[in-house]
């Protein structure tokens, strides 16, 4: 186990092309245990690609990724699968399993991974639903939940695996405005509990409030990285300044 402060995840010189588009070109970053990293940038900047490299949903063409000191064999799906039990992910479109209730959605993966028995999983699922303030929806199917509720169940589902890191890929971008707050509040509360998080988002208020560090990406590269104050108020790079001004 690494002492906190040392990188939990370290990515070096990642490159990824999709056809003729270079989605990532020599990107390096590291995430320390307990850190909250927010990634911002325009469409096509590579933010989603980067975050998906961190749990192997996208396999980089080049580069090196280490998790807790162990180098990951980038092309080994089996290696990534074991890793995904420690790296959770929440998607923009929440994608709950529509044929399962909230409780069943949450309990499926931990039981299959051998983390807990079915009865333990049910208890844990109920506990997590309480945590995300949806205890009364335990036996509801996703089709009967609002977008914000579905996303909160999706977060509970990711938490059930007891991950060391949670990755968020634009978690509120597909939500109606009145539901964004409930999800962001949950994320703030998770951050306060010490969860290591990497969040791709357009929600600048959230980034300012929660981030330890912000990365600004454009065209597959990290343009600037630093604490929120720097990125939002005192930029080193003009491109960063321009982007922040546009979205302010």
């Amino acid at each position: 186990m690494q002492a906190s402060g040392a990188p939990l995840i370290e990515a070096r010189n990642l490159a990824k092309a999709f056809g003729r588009t270079q989605a990532l070109a020599d990107v390096s970053c590291s995430i320390a245990s307990g850190e909250r990293l927010v990634v911002i940038g325009p469409s096509g900047s590579g933010k989603s690609t980067l975050i998906r490299c961190l749990n192997g949903l996208v396999k980089p063409d080049a580069g090196k990724i280490t998790f807790d000191g162990d180098t990951i064999e980038l092309s080994s799906e089996a290696h990534w699968r074991r890793l995904r039990q420690r790296v959770g992910m929440v998607f923009q479109d929440y994608t709950l399993f529509p044929h399962l209730t909230a409780i069943e959605n949450i309990g499926l993966a931990p039981v299959r991974a051998g983390l807990m028995s079915k009865s333990e999983a049910e208890l844990e699922a109920r506990r997590l639903l309480e945590r995300v303030q949806l205890a009364e929806k335990a036996t509801s199917y996703p089709a009967f939940l609002s977008g914000g509720q579905q996303q909160r169940v999706a977060i509970a589902r990711a938490l059930a695996m007891r991950p060391q890191v949670l990755l968020f890929d634009e978690p509120t971008s597909a939500l109606d405005p009145e539901m964004i707050k409930e999800v962001l509040d949950l994320m703030v509360s998770l951050a306060r509990d010490g969860m290591t998080m990497v969040v791709v988002t357009h929600e600048m208020g959230f980034a300012r409030a929660v981030a330890d560090r912000v990365l600004f990406m454009e065209a597959g590269r990290i343009v600037e990285a630093g604490p929120p104050d720097q990125i939002f108020s005192n930029q080193n790079d003009s491109r960063t300044r321009e982007f922040v001004r546009r979205i302010a």
Partner: peptide
Amino acid sequence: HQFVSATALGL
């Protein structure tokens, strides 16, 4: 998306 989502859970 269903497949990707399930993959991300380590299934």
